[in-house]
């Protein structure tokens, strides 16, 4: 373990609003191979949570890796995680390092 080792953070977003309220770009076979948060909308669940930041890269959603998933597939996974009634939250594993 060293100072240059990438760090990741688990962020639990409660479904506190009717929308998640993030915009993502990236996915497999693009310049940005893992989805990156480009916008956080005020009043959305992600904004209310207060722990997600623009620029963070999403590594996992509810423990499912986004590596190798194309943009639409990654977006669908996140949308479904927010929509399902099985959980009242979505867990994001994020990193600041691109």
């Amino acid at each position: 373990p060293g100072l240059l080792e990438p760090t990741s953070t688990l962020v639990r977003v409660a479904k506190s609003a009717s929308t998640l309220g993030i915009a993502i770009e990236g996915g497999a076979n693009t310049r940005q191979p893992l989805p990156r948060i480009v916008t956080i909308q005020r009043g959305g669940s992600a904004h209310n949570c207060g722990q997600l930041r623009v620029g963070q890269v999403i590594l996992e959603v509810n423990g499912v890796s986004l590596r190798g998933r194309e943009h639409r597939d990654a977006a669908r996974l996140i949308a479904e995680a927010f929509k399902t009634n099985e959980r009242d939250h979505v867990d994001f594993l994020v990193t600041e390092f691109n």
Binding site: T19, L20, G21, I22, A23, I24, E25, G26, G27, N29, T30, R31, Q32, P33, V38, T39, Q41, H71, R72, A75, I78, A79, F82
Partner: peptide, 15 residues
């Protein structure tokens, strides 16, 4: 065949 030097940009999706 043309060799692509950079990958294409991604679309952006609002969730």
């Amino acid at each position: 065949r043309e060799k692509r030097l950079t990958l294409p940009p991604s679309e952006i999706t609002l969730l």
